[in-house]
Simulated assay, not measured.
Amino acid sequence: MSVSERKSFGLAIILWFFLGGIGVHRIYVKEKVSVILWYWLACMVTIGLLWLVDVFLIKRWIDEANRRYKASL
């Protein structure tokens, strides 16, 4: 998977807060649109708890994405 740009933690949190229910923060960080269908299903099954768990995982995802970006330079 290639990383096209450095990721911003602040933008990821804003996306999570306003559009997290539909998984936009996951698309931004992981650059995989296919993950959205699984995310929607998981959110429906867990009644939105997965959305809350994601806020604690975003920082790690951003760090990993930025590490991959540096390695690709």
Score class of each variant (00 low, 15 high):
Met1Ser: 15
Ser2Lys: 15
Ser2Leu: 15
Ser2Gln: 15
Val3Ile: 05
Ser4Leu: 12
Glu5Ala: 04
Glu5Arg: 05
Arg6Phe: 10
Lys7Glu: 02
Ser8Gly: 02
Phe9Gln: 08
Gly10Ile: 09
Leu11Phe: 11
Leu11Glu: 03
Leu11Val: 11
Leu11Met: 09
Leu11His: 08
Leu11Lys: 07
Ala12Arg: 00
Ala12Val: 03
Ile13Phe: 11
Ile13Glu: 04
Ile14Pro: 04
Leu15Cys: 01
Trp16Gln: 06
Phe18Lys: 05
Phe18Trp: 06
Phe18Glu: 09
Phe18Ile: 10
Leu19Phe: 13
Leu19Lys: 07
Gly20Cys: 01
Gly21Ala: 03
Ile22Ala: 02
Ile22Lys: 08
Gly23Tyr: 00
Gly23His: 10
Gly23Leu: 00
Val24Phe: 11
His25Met: 07
His25Phe: 09
His25Asp: 00
Arg26Pro: 08
Arg26His: 05
Tyr28Phe: 11
Tyr28Pro: 09
Tyr28Ile: 02
Val29Asn: 04
Lys30Pro: 01
Glu31Pro: 03
Glu31Thr: 04
Lys32Gln: 15
Val33His: 05
Val33Ala: 12
Val33Gly: 11
Val33Met: 14
Ser34Gly: 07
Ser34Thr: 02
Ser34Tyr: 10
Val35Ile: 14
Ile36Val: 13
Ile36Cys: 11
Ile36Asn: 03
Leu37Trp: 13
Leu37Gly: 10
Leu37Met: 14
Trp38Tyr: 14
Trp38Gln: 05
Trp38Ala: 12
Leu41His: 05
Leu41Phe: 06
Met44Phe: 15
Val45Phe: 05
Val45Lys: 06
Val45Glu: 00
Thr46Val: 13
Ile47Cys: 14
Ile47Trp: 12
Gly48Arg: 05
Gly48Asn: 01
Gly48Met: 02
Gly48Cys: 09
Gly48Leu: 06
Leu49Phe: 05
Leu49Val: 13
Leu49Asp: 04
Leu50Met: 06
Leu50Gln: 11
Leu50Glu: 09
Trp51Ala: 02
Leu52Val: 07
Val53Trp: 07
Val53Gln: 01
Asp54Gly: 02
Val55Ala: 09
Val55Leu: 10
Val55Phe: 06
Val55Gly: 03
Val55Ser: 06
Phe56Val: 09
Phe56His: 03
Phe56Lys: 07
Phe56Asp: 04
Leu57Cys: 11
Ile58Met: 00
Ile58Leu: 08
Ile58Arg: 03
Ile58Lys: 04
Lys59Glu: 14
Lys59Leu: 10
Arg60Leu: 03
Trp61Met: 12
Trp61Thr: 00
Asp63Gly: 05
Asp63Met: 08
Asp63Leu: 11
Ala65Pro: 01
Ala65Arg: 06
Arg67Ile: 06
Arg68Glu: 14
Arg68His: 13
Arg68Ala: 13
Arg68Met: 11
Arg68Asp: 12
Tyr69Phe: 13
Lys70Asn: 13
Lys70Leu: 15
Lys70His: 15
Lys70Ser: 13
Ala71Gly: 07
Ala71Asn: 13
Ala71His: 03
Ser72Glu: 09
Ser72Tyr: 04
Ser72Cys: 06
Leu73Trp: 10
Leu73Glu: 14
